[in-house]
Structure formats: structure tokens, C-alpha cells
Simulated scan of single mutants.
Amino acid sequence: MPPLTAKPYLRSVQVDPQADIDLERYPFTIPAVRELGVLEPHPDVTFFVGENGAGKSTVLEAIAVALGLPAEGGTKNVYREQQDVSPLQHVLKVARGWRWPRNSYFLRAESLFNVFTYLDDLGPDPRGRPSLHLRSHGEAFMAVLQDFKGEGFYLLDEPEAALSPNRQLAALTVIDRLVKEGAQFIIATHSPILLAYPRAKILSFDGTGIAEISYEDTEHYAVTRDFLNHYPRRLQQLLDD
């Protein structure tokens, strides 16, 4: 029997209807942000998908900062000077579950280097482990992921940027173990491997707003399947004059 948890820790996110918003100012010029509505994450895993610039990382970052996590990534204990972020965080209303977990982390591949440097500056690892700078990007990313605890809330921004296909498969097993131990994830991704996770809701960000879609209906699945099944023809179409 799965453990009794307080999931979902994050029940909903929306722009405060009473907030004074300038729709001509970034990020409210992004359709998915402007039409955010009431976003209700899955109790286990929610994926944000969409083209570059569609707003998925912007919304993920705003959720993280609104919940007290650093924009650059890490736990609430990463006391770095807060980066400049979009004003979206200031107008978000977040509805939490009846209990918030002790463990939370905003994991973004693009800024892990800075987070690891911050941790090194604090002094030696209390468990005697070497600096994460001494590992490859993917190995360090997986080490952080494997350190997550059950009954936690975790936001991941494009984790596939650090992970090979095999490591993405390994990440799926870690995510599944943590979900079964009571964790909740929100993940912005382009990876058709990660998107295949079954205990999930997929939210597509596009020019009309945000909509829930099935795995097979994602562009990531369709384009990848088509290319792998017909790659000689697709290469010819792409590369021939």
C-alpha cells in the first residue's frame, strides 16, 4: 500500500484576479502566461511542454520563487542574492495542501554550476563527499536527484539538458521511486523519454494558452517517432537543396 501523504502539496496556481497587471509588459505578453487561468498540478508529476519561448520555464520559475525557493535553483537554504526574475512571481496565488513537505528543491540544469560553487564556499560536505564540481554535468545532476527524499516537492527545469538518453531512463526510475514515497514533481521538459512517465499530467503551452494533452499528442512524441522511423527521408528533405 502506498504511504499516506498530504499530496498534492501544491493544489493550484493562478494569477491573482485582484492584481494590477500590465498586459503589455513581459511576461504577460506571452499567451500562456496571460491565459494561465487556474493551473491544477497532478498529485504525482506534472509536465510543462511547449516551444522555446512558450512560457513554461517562466511559469515554473515563478512558482519556485513564490514558494520561497531561489530563482537560480537549490533549496530554501541556498542564500544567494536573488536573481532578477519576472514580475509573475509577485502576482501568483498558490494554494497548498494541508501540509507542506520538509524537502523541496528547484533543480535547473543551466545554473547548477553556480549552486555547486555556493555549496563549496560553505565548506566541506558534512558527509565527506567530494565537490560536485568534480563530476560531469550529468553525474552531478543525477547525484542531486538521487539525494531527493520522499514526501518532497520538486521542480525540474529541462533536466534532459544534463542527461544522456540512458541517464534520462535512470531519472525516470528515481522519479517513480520518489513519487511512490510521496513526492510531487513539476517538470518543464522537451524530452519524449521523460514525458512517457505514466503517473502524470502533461500541460502544453502554446499561442492560445495552456491545455492538457496526452503523451501521443505531444509534438515531442510525434516528431521524434517520425524522424526515427523515416530518418533517411527526413534528412534528405532537411539537408538537400
Rank of each mutant, 00 (worst) to 15 (best):
T224W: 05
P165M: 02
D147W: 03
E151Q: 09
A6F: 09
I187D: 03
A62P: 14
F106M: 00
D22T: 11
Y215F: 14
V13I: 13
P17V: 06
V94D: 02
W100F: 12
H133T: 01
S104Q: 11
I210K: 03
N229W: 05
A200V: 10
V65F: 00
V38Q: 15
G209T: 07
Q82H: 13
Q82E: 13
A66E: 12
H137N: 10
I213P: 07
A95Q: 12
E212F: 08
L194Q: 00
A183I: 08
V15Q: 10
G53Y: 02
D217I: 00
P27K: 05
G123R: 00
L235C: 08
P165Q: 03
D240V: 10
S131I: 10
E219W: 01
D147N: 13
Y79P: 00
D241M: 07
A64K: 03
R108W: 02
V174I: 09
L92I: 09
T75Q: 01
L69P: 02
D121P: 01
P126W: 04
L39P: 15
S191D: 08
R34A: 15
D125W: 01
P198Y: 05
L194V: 05
H220V: 04
A32E: 10
N52K: 11
H230E: 15
G207S: 13
S164H: 13
R233L: 09
T208Q: 15
L107E: 00
L23S: 12
P2T: 12
A188S: 13
I202G: 06
G68E: 01
W98Y: 09
A222W: 02
R11I: 10
L132D: 00
L112F: 03
S111F: 09
R102I: 06
P8T: 06
E139D: 15
Y197K: 11
P101H: 01
Y215P: 01
V15W: 06
E35M: 13
A64E: 06
V144T: 03
G209V: 08
A143R: 12
Q83H: 05
P87T: 05
R177W: 02
Q18I: 07
T117W: 06
Y118P: 02
V65H: 00
L23K: 14
P165D: 03
E81N: 05
H137I: 07
H220M: 07
Y9T: 10
P87A: 07
L122F: 04
L235D: 10
Y105S: 02
P198I: 09
G207E: 14
G138T: 04
R96P: 04
L163D: 04
R108P: 03
F141C: 04
P87Q: 04
H230V: 08
E110H: 09
L134T: 14
E81R: 08
R108N: 14
H190M: 07
E160W: 05
Y221A: 09
P31D: 08
Y105H: 13
N166D: 12
P130T: 06
L239F: 15
Q184D: 07
T75P: 01
F48Y: 12
D240Q: 15
L39T: 14
N77L: 08
E219V: 10
I202C: 07
T29D: 11
G207D: 13
A143C: 05
D120Q: 02
R127Y: 11
E216R: 08
N229M: 11
L112Y: 01
T224V: 13
V78A: 01
W100T: 01
A32Y: 11
T58L: 06
V49I: 15
A200D: 07
